[in-house]
Amino acid sequence: MDFISILSIFVMACFVGYYVVWSVTPALHTPLMAVTNAISSVIIVGALIAAAAGGSLTAKWLGLIAVALASVNIFGGFAVTARMLAMYKKKER
């Protein structure tokens, strides 16, 4: 992919983000932060590439540490979001 295609995706995604986030109900802003935290750990993709690649032992270890850190976030972020969301209940009757 050339730089301009990537930039196009990025700019469009910013607009999507803008409208999607404004549609989030304020009552769920804390879960929003927790889940954005979890998904921003998609940076694990870069960490996995670094950890998998041969060539530089230092880079591999940096990658492995990054995999561990991002995993804390992925599991922690999704789990804590799920825990919060399960608490939101409607009036019974």
Binding site: A34, A47, I49, A50, A52, S56, A59, A66, L69, G77
Partner: peptide
């Protein structure tokens, strides 16, 4: 959690600098 994402980004960028071929 934010700090971990930040640190992961630092480590990935550093790994990319040290081993750009990968």
């Amino acid at each position: 959690f934010h700090s971990l994402v930040g640190m992961a980004a630092v480590l990935v960028a550093a790994a990319a600098f040290l081993n750009p071929g990968a």
